[in-house]
Design a protein around this nucleic acid. Structure first.
Lengths: 305, 305
DNA sequence: TAGAATTATCGGTTTTCCCTATATCGGACC
DNA sequence: GGTCCGATATAGGGAAAACCGATAATTCTA
């Protein structure tokens, strides 16, 4: 059996005429006759009762043609599905981003994306780096926007931009008096940090030359679950923290209890990039997404391409 | 696209392994790889994201595989349908019979049929000869049990049996006195007849050497629509009529007002046979039906084979 | 670094499919 | 009754496809 055979059968059933059916299928009449006969032999039944003068479908043939029609319809559906997905930009692009980036980056690019790539559907998820990479491995997402170096033998990466860290401290904090925040000020300063697994915590510790988390112990219960929570703590004078650039923009405008300050250090930034499977078949979609992203970054971050 | 291709795709989707999928499809791995690739090219999309180490299905692939599964299931249904109809005895045999035969013949053979050919489903209809032949032409029935010669260039026929006519007259009719009913008695006797189109009417007239119907005129309103009605008329003394043998059996037992008499004439019978399309593909089913029919006829009719 | 596992590629063979030409059959027309 | 027309079936040859075995290429494992 064969999709082509079924098409022939349906054509004959529709026209009750081998010649016309053959014409409709763009083959010669002997070819169509032969294929129908072949199928009848294969199935062991007679589909059409034919005389030299007329063609009539048998009762079994009738039911079989009904199924054949459904099959051909399904096949057409498959072709249509494929057709509409042929443009690699069409169809959902599943992007995961770390939680300290996503809420501040996505608002910047979603509207431009809809304008520039209206046919692209974006599915966004927020997870911690490790979870993102795991989902990437399981093909649950197509790219992970992260800020931690990954094993490039497993995933491909494209550096997008360097995002500076800002210091956020309460209005009445000792730092308030200082004109500029130097590396020395930060060294071993106790910072409020996100909970385990968030790369921002590791990055902040690195910037401040803090000891590894495991040795701290006593501060464990101050690790917050989100940047928003962290900023709430800063706002009520609990301490200070580092905030990535894109997240700062909202704070400065809305929160009078929090002061955000540029850092003097040159290495106080994190590098943001997408990680994706090398075998990911829709690079074009990803590239288009990245282009729109880069075009809509504020000047406070440093584009790398 | 191709049923085979879809089978390959589903196999790969199931096993996530080209080699195993190939094994399951009884082809070599290169063949399967090649066909999958061909299909992907044809559809213009990537169905599977493969590395040297793993195979994962793409989102589009997932939906397409779902449709492919349905298609393969339908195809399997077609094969099963064909399988179960492969035995030509299986499946409905649509028999039409004239109304003066069907009610008296069918009760004789239905039970034996169910015993001998339990898998055969019989669909019976009762019509006048012309209507039966028309339905035969339209493939609405597979055989017509009739008693009028037909153009054997159009349909094939098989003589089954000769069915004698009996005379039915009221108990107090002049015929009552006669020892035997001769051809002379019948000649130009006015008989109660069935309405236009029933072959029994024509046959009765022939037996009695009656004038053609068109010239009678005054008797038109005595033409009844069924043999049962006719016998009711005989029962209340309205006249006499000819009754085919198989129909007589019920009368003799049940009706005390009607006398049934054998006729002396040798030609007072009708020949019963099935007519069927020469191209009818299930001769075996028809032959089997005929065999059971012949085996269960009473000795009062004369089997012809 | 060798070996095992897995998919892709290549060359040659077999099978299937298709076309043209022709046979065959039934009906229509003269 | 003979001839033509319309329809399906059959035959032969050529083109396309599908298939296989061998092998390359790549990646993970030991």
């Amino acid at each position: 059996m064969n999709l082509r055979d079924l098409k022939y059968v349906v054509a004959v059933a529709d026209s009750s005429h081998f010649g016309h059916a053959a014409e409709r299928c763009y083959v010669s009449q002997p070819t169509l006759s032969g294929q129908i006969k072949k199928l009848e032999d294969e199935l062991g039944i007679t589909l059409f009762e034919r005389t030299k003068r007329s063609v009539a479908i048998t009762p079994v043939g009738e039911t079989i043609v009904a199924h054949a029609r459904e099959i051909l319809e399904q096949a057409e559906t498959i072709r249509q599905l494929a057709q509409s997905h042929q443009d690699p930009l069409v169809g959902p692009l599943r992007i995961g981003a770390i939680m300290t980036l996503s809420p501040y980056l996505m608002p910047l690019i979603l509207k431009p994306l809809r304008e520039r790539l209206p046919q692209m559907r974006l599915v966004i998820s927020e997870e911690m780096t490790e979870t993102l990479l795991e989902r990437l491995r399981k093909h649950e997402i197509d790219a992970a926007l992260i800020a931690t170096p990954v094993d490039t033998s497993e995933f491909a990466t494209i550096p997008l931009f360097d995002e500076p860290f800002w210091l956020a401290h309460p209005r009445n904090h000792p730092f308030q008096e200082k004109k500029a925040i130097t590396q020395k000020d930060l060294d071993n300063t106790e910072l409020l940090l996100l909970s385990e697994g968030h790369c921002l915590a590791d990055q902040a510790m690195e910037v401040c030359h803090m000891k590894a988390r495991a040795e701290q112990g006593d501060m464990a219960d101050l690790h917050a679950a989100s940047l928003e929570t962290l900023l709430q703590l800063v706002g009520v004078g609990f301490g200070c923290t580092l905030v990535p650039d894109l997240a700062v923009r909202g704070i400065r405008m809305n929160d009078k209890d929090i002061v955000t300050r540029r850092l003097q250090q040159k290495d106080a930034f994190r590098r943001v990039y997408p990680a994706f499977r090398r075998s990911f078949p829709r690079r074009q979609a990803l590239d288009a997404f990245i282009e729109v992203l880069l075009d809509n970054l504020p000047d406070t971050v440093f584009r790398l391409s």
